[in-house]
């Protein structure tokens, strides 16, 4: 879902850059207050894992592929603001080094896959766990729901930006983006659930870290 340069107009670029800059600044401030020694290696591992996993496009219907975003996983393990930091690292590196996602579109990409995906994934997960309890099963279901919702809502944000930029009418681009990503979100949900179940089996204490 990495937007290249050329899709977004100046107003949308400026707005999303300003919002994302504010969001990342706030993430740094909050991490500065809450992030401790034990969070540090997990921040590195999650950024590395999300980069690697994003390279693995999986096929979905109709000659289309998708890849995980990873924000829901990071947000569930470390909290939404830490996830915004991790996703920003990944997206900036992808844009600067790998020419994946435009430089001017970085603000929009951080907004969609960093901010929207992290917060929606985190709060959907918390919602499911608060309804179903802290069992392993409810954590895995929460992970699936949060991950699916994070992809779906990130794609809705992306569609809104494309429509506001005038590249395609909202009535066209919104159902198209949301439809494709409702499918891709299933992959995100399964992979997030799989990783969570691995973490629960091997290092369940990581899920108990203070959320940032």
């Amino acid at each position: 879902m990495h937007i290249p340069d050329g899709f977004l107009n100046v107003a949308t670029v400026a707005t999303t850059c300003a919002v994302s800059a504010g969001g990342v600044g706030n993430a740094v401030r909050i991490a500065n207050r809450k992030l401790g020694e034990k969070h540090v290696p997990l921040m590195g591992v999650l950024a590395a894992f999300i980069f690697a996993a994003q390279m693995l496009n999986f096929p979905i219907a109709g000659g289309t592929s998708g890849h995980v975003i990873g924000a829901a996983l990071a947000a569930i393990l470390l909290g939404p603001w830490a996830s915004v930091l991790i996703m920003s690292c990944v997206l900036i590196a992808q844009s600067l080094i790998f020419q994946d996602g435009g430089l001017l579109a970085l603000g929009a990409n951080i907004f969609n896959m960093g901010i929207v995906a992290s917060f929606s994934g985190y709060y959907l997960y918390r919602l499911v766990v608060s309804i179903m309890g802290e069992s392993r099963r409810s954590q895995l279901i929460g992970g699936f729901v949060g991950a699916w919702g994070s992809v779906f809502l990130a794609s809705v944000a992306c569609a809104l930006e494309l429509a506001l930029s005038g590249v395609s009418p909202l009535a066209v681009v919104l159902p198209a983006m949301a439809g494709v990503h409702a499918l891709i979100g299933i992959g995100e949900g399964l992979i997030t659930g799989g990783v969570l179940s691995l973490v629960l089996a091997t290092r369940a204490d990581l899920l108990k870290l203070r959320k940032i």
Binding site: V28, E37, V40, M43, Q94
Partner: peptide
């Protein structure tokens, strides 16, 4: 890319972390 991201995120987290442990 995987190595760069591990290093960058680890480094940023290390710089940003609070002095208090936990």
């Amino acid at each position: 890319g995987t190595t760069v991201l591990f290093g960058v995120a680890y480094g940023i987290a290390w710089l940003v972390k609070t002095k208090a442990s936990g």
